[in-house]
Write a protein that binds this DNA or RNA. Structure first.
Lengths: 210, 210
DNA sequence: TCAACTATGTTCACAGCGTATACATCAGAG
DNA sequence: CTCTGATGTATACGCTGTGAACATAGTTGA
């Protein structure tokens, strides 16, 4: 190797770029994830990225995939907290609530990352929106499905109610997150947001049970 | 003026730019609203825009304001259709449904414009999320408030139920629109989307009444 | 009527961006 | 030891948003 210092990583540029993308997008959102800016953060020439990603968009998508895992982790830890209830029905409902509030909480505390959350190229086009599962599904979505299926099993939801519940839940929770980060609620104090979030999540849960 | 043909509009560049921005964003979304591209469409030099807008962002916001009116118009025409019911309660509920489905319909048939809809710089920070109104409120939001207030007046909703209903409704409807345009539902056939939209809107309406 | 002023648009320039192409360097295989 | 493929660099091109200086058209006031 002739003693000259190598670029400090060899064969791991891909993950280094994703890591840098995570750090940058966390504070600056998508805008902060320019290809040149990310490669600069890693200390490499701009075009080096093209050895690992076809596009700048491909890099962003790769980072968005990581964000999916972070989102799922945040939701999961919140769900653990909610699992400490005696009555199984209460516990199942509390879990569903935790799934929703976890999603919202993540969006509000990490708005930069939340911007990326829909870019994870998952596309339900191949799979009918049903209970069955195949291929890669974002783990956060899977948590929602699990919570709803559990409510079906213990008889809190009927098959009919279960049918489109996932889209009602996801729509409400995602929509609220968007309104709270980019929309008209964007500069409301956190306490207001939290109280509205709780009401909104409770409302949709009542809706799917009605 | 020495007979030379003038740039064809004098004093109306601002509205011409907004018009061009509408046309471009309709098919290409925000990305198609680059300052150079818009000025090119009008046939004027790029920097001419700076006489009427401080930023490119300011131009985008101005276009987004126009989009708000288009959204409101679409929702309104749809609401007219739904107003033909005998029972006042049914009519009031049908109106609320129409408000929601109108919002979703607009988003799906004009996804380029829908991208701009949250950029209309309205910010509810000054005004508590209450029934009262002041200043400029996006007309589509006002239609939602009116529909809900009407439900309160005729006794379909209690004051308590009315309280946070606007955020539940807006969240659900906006979230569904986002999932259907940028999200996992983005390439579902229109019939699937329509049926899901109807279910989701019905669900949230049942939620706020429960 | 003529000069000064304001409003509006153009020209030129600059830094930044994504990315295509050609080149350099290194690791491992034959 | 050389060939080959993988990886990073250098250079360049066209695009972007925007600042500064300039030109011109219409208005205003003496």
């Amino acid at each position: 190797m002739s003693g000259v210092s190598r670029p400090y990583h060899f064969g791991e540029l891909r993950s280094a770029l994703i890591e840098a993308g995570l750090k940058l997008s966390r504070s600056g959102g998508i805008k902060a994830m320019g290809l040149r800016e990310v490669t600069r953060a890693v200390g490499v020439s701009p075009n080096a990225a093209y050895r690992h990603f076809t596009d700048q968009r491909a890099l962003v998508v790769a980072v968005a995939d990581q964000v999916q895992d972070l989102l799922a982790a945040a939701m999961f830890s919140r769900m653990q907290t909610a699992s400490a209830r005696a009555d199984p029905k209460d516990r199942a409902l509390a879990r569903l609530r935790a799934v929703g509030l976890g999603y919202i909480d993540f969006a509000i505390s990490e708005p930069g990352w939340f911007e990326l959350s829909l870019l994870s190229q998952d596309d339900t086009s191949s799979r009918p929106p049903s209970v069955t599962r195949e291929g890669r599904v974002p783990p956060s979505y899977q948590m929602l499905l699990d919570a709803l299926n559990h409510l079906l099993e213990i008889g809190v939801l009927t098959l009919d109610q279960r049918a489109s519940a996932e889209w009602s839940c996801w729509s409400t929770v995602h929509g609220f997150a968007d309104l709270a980060t980019r929309g008209p609620l964007r500069s409301q104090p956190r306490t207001t947001i939290n109280s509205l979030a709780a009401q909104v999540v409770d409302t949709v849960i009542m809706g799917i049970r009605a």
